[in-house]
Computed example of a mutant assay.
Amino acid sequence: MTETPGPTPSQTVGPFLSLGLTWPDGADVAGEDTPDALRIGGIVVDGAGEPVFDAVVETWQADPDGHFDHPDSAAGSAFRGFGRCPTDGDGHWEIRTLKPGPVDGQAPHIDVSVFARGLLDRVVTRIYFPDEAAANATDPVLATVPAERRATLVAVDTGRGDLRFDIRLQGEDETVFFAV
């Protein structure tokens, strides 16, 4: 009887992503006492609508002035522009950050990568802000997205001073992902 070899690590993904990719303050893009800090978070779900409990959400963004050069980005600074947050057992993720400024004619946004089991490559999306309707309407990247799908890229104001941004990897209302 010939034995069929099992998958090798190069053929599978996870649930290894949280090992070595996260750090204790990874979700703190802005320090705890930073004025005007806000929380953005949500849930990552798969194509069946089930929470993805072992994903990593990574964010990059400009500062409130629209700059990416963060001279104070050393540990313990007020703002570093980069975050990395693992999802919890219910698929939730959250970062504390500052609202970015516009960059090169683009509306304020946060770039997001998601790493998860079953994904051989990261998926890349953006978070746009609900209070930036005029800027969002002229954003050149958002303009490439069909109008009926743009809402998947705009965070929702929870009314409690924070924003919700759910990430749907497949299925109905799938988040728009960009080929980069």
Rank of each mutant, 00 (worst) to 15 (best):
P108T: 01
P102H: 03
W23P: 02
G42K: 01
W93F: 15
Y128N: 04
S73Q: 11
R80T: 13
P51W: 02
H109S: 13
G31H: 09
A74T: 04
F79P: 03
R84W: 00
V57C: 05
T59M: 15
D111S: 10
D25C: 08
G66D: 01
I95E: 01
R80G: 08
V123E: 14
H70W: 04
P108K: 04
G76F: 06
P108D: 07
P86V: 06
G26H: 10
V112E: 07
G42T: 01
G83A: 12
D72N: 13
I95T: 03
H67I: 00
L98C: 11
P102M: 06
I40V: 15
H92K: 14
G26P: 13
V57N: 01
A107H: 00
A30Q: 13
H70I: 12
V45M: 10
G76E: 05
V124P: 03
R122S: 15
G89M: 00
P64N: 12
D36R: 15
V56F: 03
F53Y: 06
V114Q: 04
P24Y: 05
G81W: 01
P51V: 06
P51T: 04
A48T: 09
F115M: 14
T59P: 08
G81N: 05
A30L: 10
R39T: 10
F115H: 14
Q106I: 01
S113L: 12
V29Q: 03
D111L: 06
I95K: 02
S77V: 02
D69F: 05
D25W: 07
A55N: 05
G41R: 04
G47C: 13
P35E: 13
R39S: 10
F129N: 00
G105T: 10
T97I: 05
P108I: 01
S73W: 08
V52I: 12
V29R: 07
P130G: 09
S73H: 12
D121F: 14
D104G: 05
W93P: 00
L98W: 00
I43P: 02
P130N: 08
L38N: 07
P86W: 08
W23T: 08
V103E: 00
H67T: 09
Q106D: 04
G83T: 07
A30V: 05
D28A: 15
T125N: 14
A75H: 07
V56S: 03
S113Y: 10
H92W: 07
D36N: 15
G76V: 06
D88G: 07
W60R: 15
G118E: 04
F53S: 10
P102N: 09
F79Y: 15
D72Q: 09
H109N: 08
T34C: 11
I127W: 05
H67R: 15
F129Q: 02
F129A: 02
W23N: 11
G49Q: 13
E94W: 11
L120T: 13
S73M: 11
W60G: 06
A107I: 06
A78V: 12
D36Y: 08
R122F: 13
V123T: 07
E94F: 02
V29T: 08
P86Y: 07
E94S: 14
G118F: 05
A116Q: 01
F82H: 07
A55C: 12
H67V: 09
V56H: 11
R39P: 00
P24R: 15
E50V: 11
G101S: 03
E58R: 15
P51K: 05
D46W: 04
D121V: 10
P100A: 03
A107P: 03
G66A: 12
D69Q: 06
D69W: 08
